[in-house]
Amino acid sequence: MITLNNVTKTYSLSKPGEYTAVHDVTVELPARQITVFKGPSGSGKTSLLTLIGCMVRPTSGRIHLHGMAEQFPFQKDESAPLEITGLPERFLTTIRRTTFGFIFQQCNLITGISVLENVMLPAYTTGERLSKVRERALLLLEQFAVVRHAHRRVDLLSGGEAQRVAIARALINNPTILIADEPTAHLDSKLSHEFMEIVFRLKQEGKTVLIASHDPIVTDSVQRDRVVELRDGVICEQGSNR
């Protein structure tokens, strides 16, 4: 489980253009479920996901990861939840590498290199043998039906194919939590439904999935477990699917 307690994120603090994207958010996000953050553009969905994913530090408040402390040698008390907001950058990197898998709105694949290399990229720094990583990457590409493009440059892929490659990349280090920011923004409805099916499959494999979206195919999907609605950086509604 992930808990956020009074989390606030203000950009350009004490500078002209100061802007609070997330304001005093307190929420519990259960493990092994699909949680969808919905809301209009600028409601703070992306900011909330980047905060949870350790990509940016909150201005105030705390974020805890429950039941994962034993994975990290720097956590002394294994029974206590892992408080990630105050951790030094090197520990946050470890958490990003091992716990989270990110799927970005624009896919954010590295252009100019092959599909296979893109998928392998998060594992380069783990010190694992490339041959093993390559094997795993090919399996994932096969799983997402893009293995035939493994040696093509990512620039040449269609939107749906790029999205699948991004999912494969997010899963290469076998993370516990998958974070997807507007994953269907550039997909047609068929591909969006396919994406939700993939996500559902991942949930069944035991992954926790957090999605930020205002696409009805995602927000109203039967596969999601929980919806958290945001407006102006504040949670205005949350509820379960069932």
Binding site: T93, R96, R97, L121, P122, T125, T126
Partner: peptide, 10 residues
């Protein structure tokens, strides 16, 4: 930024 977000250290 992408490299860091997918787990690359500084």
């Amino acid at each position: 930024g992408i490299l860091k977000s997918i787990g690359w250290d500084t």
